[in-house]
């Protein structure tokens, strides 16, 4: 278990990493990355049972899949800070010949990544597959996945949701980054999601919400509750209410920073709000 203060410090450093990565190449997705920083920092450093080093097979450890691959900056930073690869490598984000592609991939062999994602809606099926293999292997560890809320507009998600409940895939926790925003605007304006609780429950899932998805203690409590509900015949869905762009005042309360990099002055302002804690890469 990690104390909240050290996790907070890690989140602040991850925010700096995200901002500096997208600024350097003037591309990438800071909004959703910042919104999920607390969640992924807590998941990787307090919740998941992980082995030392990286093995593609993920046997006898918890496994995470990022389905909304566009928030690659945050997963790259969290993986690097967790020791999967050197933090200096964050400097190569989106550059030619880098393992840190625009969207995560196994293709260049980046430790920590087990599936390519970016084209949305595929990660839940993949996570279910790994959860099924864990059951076949007698491996009692859990499978986690993260999805954007806008991503739920993809039909494959609901094929997967139906399968997971119908086949009692109960060693699996899917989290929805519920920031209610997507590229073109509010999800309610682009294509309303309706009640996600009602939808997932109707599909046969056990659903719980983390009302403040940018609060480390709330995330700890929520994920502990989610874990306690595994192994009971239902897949578990966590609705993680987050703020896109969290931690940078001018990136919050708007969808504008979904896929836009800050300029020099904006970067300076954003970094000033998040002082260096563990050392920049």
């Amino acid at each position: 278990m990690s104390d909240n203060k050290s996790l907070e410090n890690l989140v602040t450093q991850v925010r700096r990493d995200i901002l500096r990565m997208v600024h350097k190449v003037n591309s990438g997705h800071p909004g959703g990355s910042l919104g999920c920083a607390e969640f992924l920092v807590t998941l990787y450093n307090d919740i998941m049972k992980l082995n030392d080093g990286f093995a593609m097979d993920g046997k006898e450890e918890d496994v995470f899949f990022l389905s909304n691959g566009h928030i690659s900056p945050v997963i790259y930073s969290v993986l690097a800070r967790r020791g999967y690869f050197p933090v200096e490598e964050l400097n190569t984000f989106r550059l030619l010949d880098s393992r840190l592609q625009g969207h995560p991939t196994t293709h260049e062999g980046l430790p920590g990544i087990r599936i390519a994602s970016g084209s949305l809606g595929q990660g839940m099926s993949v996570a279910i597959g790994t959860a099924l293999t864990k059951k076949l292997n007698g491996d009692n560890h859990l499978v986690y996945s993260l999805h954007g809320d806008g991503e739920l507009q993809e039909g494959q998600i609901w094929e997967a949701a139906m399968y997971a409940a119908g086949n009692k895939v109960d060693n699996y926790i899917a989290t929805i980054d519920y920031n209610k925003k997507q590229i073109d605007g509010a999800t309610d304006d682009v294509l309303p999601l309706g009640s996600l609780t009602a939808k997932f429950e109707a599909f046969g899932w056990d659903v719980l919400a983390i009302e403040n998805g940018n609060d480390i203690q709330a995330i700890k409590d929520g994920l502990a509750e989610a874990k306690s509900r595994t192994g009971k015949g239902k897949p578990v869905c966590v609705l993680l209410h987050t703020e896109m762009g969290n931690g940078v005042d001018f990136m919050m309360h708007t969808h504008a920073w979904h896929g836009k990099a800050p300029n020099d002055e904006q970067l300076e302002s954003a970094l000033a709000q998040n002082p260096e804690t563990l050392g920049d890469y």
Binding site: M56, D57, G58, K59, V63, F65, R114, I115, G121, Q122, G123, M124, S125, V126, A127, I128, G129, T130, A131, L132, T133, K134, L136, N137, D139, G155, Q156, E159, A160, M162, Y163, G166, N167
Partner: peptide, 28 residues
């Protein structure tokens, strides 16, 4: 029966599940 997976009429999900099942050593 434990190694046979009826996915239903959901081919996209089937391909994704197959990809995920390889993680852990299965050959789907």
């Amino acid at each position: 029966p434990e190694r046979f997976f009826q996915i239903g009429i959901a081919e996209a999900n089937m391909i994704g599940i197959a990809a995920g099942m390889t993680i852990g050593g299965k050959i789907p």
